[in-house]
Design a protein around this nucleic acid. Structure first.
Lengths: 204, 204
DNA sequence: ACATTACGGTACGTTCCGTTTCGTTTGTGT
DNA sequence: ACACAAACGAAACGGAACGTACCGTAATGT
């Protein structure tokens, strides 16, 4: 048969080994932080050689990004009919995903593990998946609110979303504390009740 | 005279050299980012030896922190009689200081220079000066608003300040864009009009 | 059987940190 | 004027960790 032989020749890459490498990377990332993450130690914990790692990812940054993104799903877009509730669900979902991606566990002194997203080498690799996709979802969510008449047509969606995302980021990465759904609700309600407008030049 | 000879013996440290090292560090930080910042290159640009640097700061992180903090003054606490205006001034001041601390100039691809504050080694060294002091100022500012009756007594000051700080952080570090005073005003007004309460369990 | 690729292990070259050593220069106190 | 102490530039050094190259071995398809 003219089987295109899509699969490459030779011994196939061990998918389970890939999974174990990603898992160990995640663990060590939490335990030691990015700077303290040593490739050789990952290999040691997994019980494989460095070769196996570098065959899969070009460098430490790519491996880290893969490990972080592994636990980062975008999630369903909430649609309850109420913009405020949708925003709260959206924000809570983000926070949960972020937390799951990095767990709590033991930490490096003064280093919230989530701060790994700011590592200059890693950031470009996860920026899109972590922020842009969520932002698009949030924009859509607000547009639906406008259609329902819950928000003015010229609402500055970006500013609302950035405010909520910023709060999450600040609490999670800088202070290492959690935002309760109630706190999200108060902020979202406040923003929706007196929403920023596009152009944002007018005040009263 | 019984001059206590507070000054140590021998050749005194060159204050101007210290200044030039800090300046060069700031420049290179902007040009290459923290990871790309090499001690030897700082020495080369200044025209001194590495010894002169390591005599002044214990390591790269401390030097970086010193360079960032050099341009970061806390500033006067605004007091206009209107909480919203005070908040806007407070926030704008922060943003300006942050921007001045890292300038705009040439940047590393995908690396907002301000993101240096997140470098795990640097963060603990500048955290207090950069965030805590400002936060105390903001709390005081809100307390005055409560006394004036512009805010309820159980206002959750922390949540308001974190929201504003988070927005600044997100825009500046993640997106690399600037927040206009008008945008600050809209957010602040919205937060003050429907403020979060302590405990934050009640909604309406 | 054979070609091909992954695997673990090891040795290696490179970069950069931070330290140490050296001889020299500069300020201070007598 | 003189001696002392500390800063200075230059350079060599040890160590850590990255990422690569090579080995012999194991697994898969033809």
């Amino acid at each position: 048969m003219t089987r295109p032989a899509n699969e490459p020749l030779g011994r196939p890459t061990d998918a389970e080994l890939t999974a174990r490498i990603l898992a160990a990377t995640g663990e060590l990332l939490i335990e030691r932080g990015y700077a303290g993450l040593k490739i050789e130690q990952i290999a040691k914990r997994v019980g494989c050689g460095k070769t196996a790692i570098y065959r899969r990812w070009p460098d430490k940054a790519a491996l880290t990004a893969a490990s972080v993104l592994e636990h980062t799903e975008v999630g369903e877009e909430p649609d309850t009919g109420d913009v405020v509730i949708d925003l709260v669900l959206h924000a809570t979902q983000n926070q949960t995903n972020q937390a799951r991606g990095t767990a709590a566990a033991a930490q490096v002194e003064g280093y919230s593990p989530w701060r790994v997203v700011f590592e200059p080498e890693v950031f470009p690799l996860i920026w899109s998946a972590l922020f842009e996709q969520r932002r698009d979802q949030g924009v859509h969510l607000i547009e639906r609110g406008i259609e329902r008449g819950q928000l003015p047509a010229d609402t500055d969606a970006e500013l609302i979303l950035d405010t909520i995302a910023g709060l999450t980021l600040y609490r999670q990465s800088v202070k290492g504390t959690v935002i309760t759904p109630d706190q999200y609700r108060v902020i979202a309600a406040s923003l929706v009740a007196d929403p920023p407008r596009a152009g944002s030049a007018a005040r009263g």
